[in-house]
Design a protein around this nucleic acid. Structure first.
Lengths: 216, 216
DNA sequence: CTAAGATATTGACACCGTAAACATTAAAAG
DNA sequence: CTTTTAATGTTTACGGTGTCAATATCTTAG
């Protein structure tokens, strides 16, 4: 059968690894399809299991999506937190943080879609989500603060710079993820536009530079 | 019956103004609900019309949404284009353009949701959408160029500054529209955060300032 | 007044989320 | 090893959804 069916190929009553398989399969659908293409029934069908089997592993559709969101937020948060250790120069780190955000959107488009294009119904219910979400923002926040503490820093309200940094990387990711938009821009008066990574690198660098006075 | 039913209150076979009523009612649903709450059937029910009546006015659900998108994009584009005439100072205009974007998200949340949270299926089909969409970007583009042509401008690749400006205002709008996120930030270590407009004003100003050298 | 076109309705089909009752099997208890 | 029990999966069912085809009603041009 297909690759999502139970491990041995022989059809057993118990799948054996359904929860993980459902998650992977959901991500696989999202990778190319939109959020509308993700249905529990289609998922079950693809995995070769009955329509209600997923309910043994997820309360409801929202719950599955919350799991995907959390997984994504955790990956992103971890990548960003790593930079706190590996990159000591705040300006450079800030740029790398932004690039991480953008690269994440490119590397895990399924996660990214589910993280930001899907409004969770009862958001309050998922406290874990908030914590992981805070995690990545705190990295950005701390790094911006370090940048603003540099001797040649511009005088900017920290909370504003933090909010600005977040807005920038988030907007950048969203726009860059929109393939048809990029193509359209290249077709128009934007022929000199590089690939995604080039754009991301330059835009983030430009933002980082803007926090300090380059000419003294 | 309710306010969405046909004009006179008397039930006539023909509604008389169904297309517009559907649009308004859809926006009304989106104003407080999410995109999932918008269904053609619920719409028809609310308007007091049969389930398939909307199909006389819209090819399918996608088509209705495309109309809402276009309406929103046009409103936004018009507001931005106005600024090209009324505000001559490029730096000030750039900030106002950003604010317009943010204010739009606040003033027309239904339009904004549909514009940016809903991935249209066959995007290519709706050429009109692209044109109105380009319209607002061109305003931003031109204004950024004017800013960079100022004598005290920093040396930044125009296309990068344009992309950055767009990313910034877009991300800012998205984040600001997320009410629960704002509350959470205020609850955390962000107690000094002002209201949406204050944040928007400061963040956009900060970005605009970053295009020029303040100290010479 | 009548024919034609626009507009709305009914009924049908295949999906979807999800709840309840039942079946199978793996794991724990004896 | 057997027996109980909890975990996992299935069947059936209900109401909601997008959308199509056939039909009915109204409006308007001739």
């Amino acid at each position: 059968m297909n690759k999502w069916c139970s491990s041995g190929g022989k059809k057993s009553y118990h799948h054996g690894n359904l929860r993980e398989t459902l998650i992977e399969c959901a991500l696989d659908i999202l990778k190319e399809g939109s959020l509308n293409d993700l249905s529990l029934r289609a998922l079950a069908r693809k995995v070769g299991v009955s329509q209600t089997a997923p309910y043994r592993h997820f309360e409801d559709k929202n719950d599955l999506i919350a799991v995907l969101k959390e997984e994504g937020l955790r990956k992103l948060g971890d990548s960003m937190r790593d930079l706190l250790i590996t990159e000591k120069d705040p300006i450079l780190r800030l740029q790398k943080l932004g690039l991480t955000y953008v690269e994440f959107a490119e590397k895990y488009p399924a996660h990214f879609k589910v993280m930001f294009e899907y409004e969770l119904c009862d958001y309050e219910k998922y406290e874990a989500l908030h914590e992981v979400s805070d995690n990545s923002f705190l990295c950005l926040q701390q790094t911006v603060n370090e940048c603003l503490a540099l001797p040649n820093a511009r005088k900017i309200e920290p909370s504003i710079a933090q909010f600005g940094a977040w807005s920038m990387v988030h907007g950048l990711s969203v726009l860059l993820l929109n393939q048809s938009l990029l193509e359209r821009m290249r077709a128009g008066n934007f022929s000199d536009l590089g690939d995604r990574n080039q754009i991301a690198e330059q835009v983030t660098k430009s933002f980082c530079d803007s926090l300090v006075n380059s000419i003294l």
